[in-house]
Design a protein around this nucleic acid. Structure first.
Lengths: 248, 248
DNA sequence: ACCTTGAGTTAACGGCGTTTACCTCGCCCA
DNA sequence: TGGGCGAGGTAAACGCCGTTAACTCAAGGT
């Protein structure tokens, strides 16, 4: 409104402010309430001013989802800190992910259940191209998972059931093995070569699929009957997964 | 426009027409493109006329999601028809669900990944109250799953690993057992009483959690690295699940 | 002193959901 | 025969929305 008071607070303070307000709207009222006009209104500014910072609402939402990922990463990293064995850390990260998702369902929906890439149709995201979700978009979040997955793979591959990997898959997983090896290398995480077996990759995929799946199920309320027992069900899944992975 | 030509096509033909157009928009351009004005435009009608049929856009979307469920149910029922053993049918339904979801990502997102009930905030859905997803909203879809799950439970419980059910869960699953028993009774599906054990309920939950989870993962493109192998991964999950369920 | 630049403004366009008031048929009943 | 009436449509308007274009105006460098 004033214009003078605003001027001295330059880009470096205004831009985080925008994100903060946008984030609040997202948390309180969901993605579709994150409106340029609403943000501007809360800041005592007019909507077109926001175009000095973002080229479109879509880009703002994209940046917002990056912020969300960063926060989630920090939270997961923190939750991983105290825990003796590798398995403890893995469990901590999984539980942290579930807790965060249940506490922030709208952020979860934005980041993990917004049709993206091929399935979304239309053009690619503003940041880069965006074929798959993980590495481009989540980035440091991916790093967190890698950091916890590395030791898991190193340890877990030791005595996982040998028959667990169907033959057709072993060949197809080769690309993923290479991708994963590169990611580990890029993060400076050292993994013994034999730990990057197709079995280990398969293991990792199962962890993520079940973790994501159960959490999404819960967040979107798609459990059949009631499920006050969702928490215990989740714990049971973790134990199962650990057992199947040959972890103790 | 005319008003006379339209009159003779009464409610019984106009209303399905609305749904058809809405459905087309949903499929082609996604949920947010399902606009009262766009539908009206395609029908050569003005937007307020649609309020003779639905009290709000939200209600229209709700009805639409019911239609989607009905179609999915029909498709799954059909895919189940030819298949000898119970396991064959279960596999057929699971594969059918995955195929449908990948072919209709926007419908999937509307029905299975729209934050609903407690997590959505605000008021309840227009149809009824809507605490949990399955029975109220999906209804006949629930029936399809029940029909395929019944024999599975009857057969599968025979020799599932005895230690698979954590003790804390057995108690908590009692409510779900009762719910499930009622649902089976309501559908006229006869299930031996011992097949409705806590173990069997736990089994069922795991099937649904992994099926939903893996499909959602794929639809939303949240697989890490590439995953051209998603199909084989899915098959592998089915086999795993069947083995764990003691099915042959 | 002057000009550039960047953060913000106002005004406007078109699209959206929704409400209100109105019209206008076809139908049933006195 | 005619008059009410309700169902299905209309036009106009309100207040949102994203986005664009043309502007203001202070800060800062030359």
């Amino acid at each position: 409104m004033d214009g003078v008071a605003r001027r001295e607070s330059s880009r470096s303070t205004t831009e985080p402010d925008i994100r903060r307000r946008a984030r609040n709207l997202l948390v309180r009222e969901g993605q579709e309430a994150v409106t340029l006009r609403a943000i501007a209104r809360e800041m005592g500014i007019t909507a077109p001013a926001l175009y000095r910072y973002y080229s479109s609402r879509e880009e703002l939402l994209f940046r917002l989802s990056e912020d969300v990922c960063a926060d989630l990463s920090a939270e997961l990293t923190a939750s991983m800190r105290n825990g003796g064995s590798h398995l403890d850390k893995v469990f901590a990260v999984c539980r942290g992910f579930r807790r965060w998702a249940l506490e922030h369902p709208r952020e979860f929906a934005l980041v993990f259940a917004t049709p993206t890439g091929a399935n979304a149709g239309e053009k690619t995201a503003p940041g880069e191209r965006d074929a798959r979700g993980h590495p481009e978009r989540h980035d440091e979040l991916g790093r967190v998972f890698l950091r916890v997955a590395g030791p898991l793979m190193a340890e877990g591959v030791a005595d996982s059931p040998p028959a667990s990997l169907p033959d057709e898959l072993r060949a197809g997983l080769a690309d993923s093995q290479r991708d994963l090896a590169e990611s580990f290398a890029a993060e400076g995480i050292e993994i013994p070569r034999e730990a990057l077996s197709a079995e280990a990759v398969y293991l990792l995929l199962r962890w993520w699929a079940r973790l994501y799946g159960q959490v999404a199920l819960e967040v979107f309320g798609q459990f059949p009957f009631d499920v006050s027992e969702a928490g215990r069900l989740f714990e049971s899944m973790l134990v199962e997964l650990a057992t199947e992975s040959g972890l103790h």
